[in-house]
């Protein structure tokens, strides 16, 4: 029975959201509000139980398994354990970030923000350079004639195929970059290359759009599958 109620509720909420394709209406607004409210609540609970409790208050010793051992350590040594100090610093930085909510002392939030930006930038700089710049450039330097060997002998068809692939790839990169080079007027050969670059960009956008349509269709199909199969039992 509870399963039936939740299925029916989910079915009506799905139809309520779908009703927007006809036109904006109060039922859609109602379902949208429920969705936003439930999502926000769910996210808050997740952050509270998956991040705040285990990563902060548990480690400081305010809650969780560490409480007893933290108290024992404090009674013995008269000071906090190193793990607690580190997490206390993090807690203070977190509190400073919240100062943004108070306009008069909002400037305090810049300090933890500077810490976050600095540490993340340092952490990502090398990885980004290596992954998205060096490796990508290295793998884009390809021979325009790429002989392919099958069982030790040259395969002309495979060689032509691979060479065309390489030409398209290298040509696409060069003309695409030329299109975004604005220090020289797009005229003559340079302008022609830029126009070819636009075509490559259009193909890329087309592929991205096609896959986006496919992605959204998949979600719609799953919802209709739910309505027909799980809710209305119209399918076997």
């Amino acid at each position: 029975m509870p399963g039936m109620v939740s299925l029916t509720l989910a079915g009506f909420l799905t139809l309520g959201i779908m009703s927007f394709v006809y036109k904006d209406n109060p039922i859609y607004k109602f379902c949208e509000s429920i969705f936003i409210g439930v999502s926000a609540g769910y996210y808050f609970v997740l952050i509270f139980y998956q991040s705040l409790l285990p990563q902060l208050t548990d480690k400081i010793g305010l809650t969780g398994a560490l409480t007893d051992s933290a108290l024992a350590y404090y009674r013995q040594s008269g000071s906090l354990a190193s793990v607690q100090w580190f997490n206390l610093i993090a807690a203070v930085l977190g509190m400073m970030m919240l100062m943004r909510l108070l306009p008069k002392i909002g400037w305090i939030s810049r300090w933890p923000l500077a810490f976050v930006i600095g540490s993340i930038a340092g952490l990502k700089l090398i990885g980004e350079l290596q992954t998205n710049i060096m490796t990508q450039i290295q793998k884009s330097i390809l021979p325009l004639w790429a002989p392919q060997y099958v069982d030790g002998s040259l395969s002309l068809a495979a060689s032509i195929g691979q060479s065309l692939t390489n030409i398209v790839l290298v040509g696409g990169i060069l003309t695409g970059v030329i299109y975004f080079f604005f220090s020289k007027e797009h005229k003559g050969v340079f302008g022609g290359a830029a126009r070819v670059g636009i075509w490559f960009l259009m193909v890329t956008f087309g592929a991205a759009f096609g896959l986006t349509v496919m992605s959204r269709m998949s979600l719609l199909i799953a919802r209709i599958d739910f309505l027909l199969r799980d809710w209305l039992h119209l399918l076997g």
Binding site: S140, A208, L211, M214
Partner: peptide, 24 residues
């Protein structure tokens, strides 16, 4: 997801991914 696939073909092409599954 399919909507992400075009972004990651670049990494497949460069060999940073050895396999890539996109969408349904």
């Amino acid at each position: 997801t399919a909507v992400m696939a075009t972004d990651y073909y670049t990494y497949y092409q460069s060999g940073q991914l050895f396999a890539l599954m996109g969408g349904l």
